[in-house]
């Protein structure tokens, strides 16, 4: 999931007696699966939480271009290069759909950018890991986009209209991303011994960071309970993680690769796989800015923003001048 540890505003789910008339009316609409639209009344905490969640999701899409962009110039064939370029362009598009959804809640694009560049808003921990070789691009598409889809498909039903519509567009495009990743993994896994080793190595390195994408267990969190009640979160982190593991195990098996977890086994009773938790200490470390690539990622975003300033300013100055000339001529 691209939004982790999003702090839900407020103090948890209110009882109907504690709610104001407006809050009750709002909750009833959410319960009836009516979409909440930008101009509708909504609790301040719902608005604040959504800005954080959608903003973090958007930032993840944008920062997520960096590890993959790293391989555009080094893709093994022209076709792979064109495909990767298209994928990375999609991620930019996804970021834009989401920023626009967040902006309908009353925050500006520049404010969101500023929050990211200052480090006050986060992006998914997964993008602080490096892509060391071409197999990593396969693993990112297969596992990282696979985990993202797991989270995004249910979010198509989220209560906030603009967020839901952005998710629908994103999900339509996302399955291309996962398939292209798996396609790279198939090629590598069916290739030479060296290629198979690369594929296995990529899986080894990306497996636990992918599990971390869903965030730590939140089954007892009052904040998550509130987000679930507002339908801006549809499943708990554990449910999504379980679904991801169950879906990925047969895919790894087909590739002839081994998931790096000795405890991974089918649990007949639960009808699901048992598996090891990722190292949550590592996760919190990465979130705090101490992952392998945090500094690089932020430096790249800051440089892109600063180096692009003259283009943004120049185009705006040109547009204003043109509009002034037009007005004068009328």
């Amino acid at each position: 999931m691209y939004a982790q540890l999003v702090k839900t505003a407020g103090t948890g789910v209110k009882t109907r007696e504690e709610m104001s008339d407006e809050e009750r009316n709002f909750q009833d609409r959410v319960d009836r699966d009516e979409k909440i639209e930008p101009k509708d009344w909504m609790p301040d905490d719902y608005r604040a939480t959504l800005i954080r969640q959608i903003g973090q999701h958007a930032h993840s899409e944008i920062v997520g271009q960096l590890p993959e962009g790293n391989w555009i110039t080094r893709a093994p064939t022209l076709e792979r290069k064109a495909i990767l370029l298209a994928k990375v362009q999609d991620e930019a598009g996804h970021g834009l759909y989401l920023y626009c959804a967040a902006e309908t809640l009353g925050v500006t694009r520049d404010e969101l950018t500023e929050e990211l560049l200052s480090g006050r808003m986060k992006y998914s921990s997964i993008f602080n890991y490096p892509t060391l070789n071409w197999a990593d691009i396969g693993a990112v598409g297969w596992l990282v986009d696979g985990a993202a889809i797991m989270n995004q498909v249910p979010l198509q039903r989220t209560s906030y209209g603009p967020y839901s519509r952005a998710m629908i567009r994103i999900c339509k495009e996302e399955s291309f991303h996962q398939r292209q990743g798996y396609d790279i993994m198939m090629k590598m896994a069916q290739g030479s011994d060296a290629q198979r080793r690369m594929a296995q190595d990529a899986l080894n390195r990306f497996w636990y960071p992918s599990l971390m994408m869903f965030g730590p267990s939140d089954k007892d969190s009052v904040h998550s309970a509130q987000s679930l009640a507002w339908k801006i979160k549809i499943d708990t982190n554990d449910e999504l993680r379980q679904r991801f593991v169950d879906q990925t195990v047969p895919q790894a098996k087909y590739l002839g690769l081994t998931i790096p977890d000795e405890n991974l086994k089918w649990n007949e009773e639960r009808g699901a796989h048992d598996f090891s938790e990722p190292d949550w200490a590592e996760f919190f470390n990465v979130i705090k800015g101490k992952g392998p690539c945090n500094v690089d990622r932020m430096d790249a975003r800051v440089a892109a923003w600063e180096d692009g300033a003259w283009v943004r300013d120049g185009l705006l100055a040109h547009a204003r001048k043109k509009s002034a000339t037009r007005t004068a001529a009328e």
Binding site: H318, A319, K322
Partner: peptide
Amino acid sequence: VGSLHAPDAEM
């Protein structure tokens, strides 16, 4: 279908 930022109509 959505919205976006641009300096003018052409862009």
